[in-house]
C-alpha cells in the first residue's frame, strides 16, 4: 500500500514537471513531436529507475558509512553521467531499434535535472530501497505523462494561429500552467 501511495504521489500529486519543476528543459525542448516525446519519456524513466537504485546504494552503502556525505553531489552526478554512458552502450549492443528510438535522447538525460533531483529527493525523503524504486517509476510515469500530454497539445496547436509572441516556449509555459491547475485536483488524494 505504502508503495502505491509513493507511486501515485510521484506520478500525479507531486508530478515532477508540473509541480516540482524538474526536467523543464526537455519538457520544453522535446515536446514538439509526439513520437520523440514518448521516446524521451521512456528513456528518462529507464535511466531514472536505474539511477535511483544505484545512487541509493552508493549513499547508504558507501557515503554514510564513511561519513562522506559532502561528496553526495559530486558522486551522484558522476554516477548518473557514467550510467547514462553505460546505458547508451548497452542499448546499442542489445537492441538496434531501441537505440534508434532512444539514442539521441540519452546524452541529453545527463543534464536532465529530473534524474539528479530524483536521487536527491529520494535521500531527502528518507525512502527505503523499495520506496525509492516506486518513487522512480512513479516519477518517470508522471514525467512521461506530462510530456506526452504536452506533445499532443502542441501538435494540435500547430494547426491554429498562436499569437506570434507566444509561439514556442511561451505558449508551452501557459499550457504547463493550465495543466498544473488541472493537476491541482489531485491534491489531497490518498
Amino acid at each position: 500500500m505504502n508503495l502505491i501511495v509513493v507511486f501515485i504521489s510521484a506520478a500525479l500529486i507531486n508530478n515532477f514537471v508540473l509541480s516540482q519543476f524538474l526536467g523543464i528543459c526537455p519538457f520544453v525542448g522535446v515536446s514538439k513531436k509526439m513520437d520523440s516525446a514518448f521516446s524521451m519519456g521512456i528513456a528518462v524513466t529507464f535511466v531514472m529507475v536505474i539511477a535511483a537504485m544505484v545512487t541509493w546504494l552508493i549513499y547508504y552503502l558507501v557515503l554514510v558509512p564513511f561519513n562522506l556525505e559532502i561528496l553526495e553531489y559530486v558522486s551522484f552526478i558522476l554516477v548518473i553521467a557514467s550510467l547514462v554512458q553505460l546505458v547508451e552502450m548497452f542499448i546499442r549492443k542489445v537492441s538496434k531499434p531501441l537505440y534508434d528510438a532512444l539514442g539521441i535522447f540519452l546524452p541529453l538525460i545527463t543534464t536532465n535535472c529530473a534524474i539528479l533531483g530524483l536521487a536527491l529527493y529520494a535521500i531527502l525523503n528518507e525512502y527505503n530501497f523499495l520506496q525509492t524504486l516506486a518513487y522512480a517509476v512513479g516519477a518517470g510515469a508522471g514525467f512521461t505523462l506530462a510530456l506526452v500530454i504536452m506533445a499532443g497539445i502542441r501538435e494540435e496547436l500547430e494547426l491554429v494561429e498562436v499569437p506570434r509572441a507566444f509561439k514556442g516556449a511561451a505558449i508551452t509555459m501557459v499550457i504547463a500552467g493550465s495543466l498544473a491547475l488541472a493537476f491541482m485536483g489531485f491534491a489531497g488524494l490518498i
Binding site: 508540473l18 519543476f21 511561451a170 509555459m173 501557459v174
Partner: peptide, 12 residues
C-alpha cells in the same frame, strides 16, 4: 506552480 508557469510564459 501554475502561477510560475503563467508568469514565465508571459515574460518570455
Amino acid at each position: 506552480p501554475p502561477g510560475a508557469f503563467l508568469t514565465l510564459g508571459c515574460m518570455i
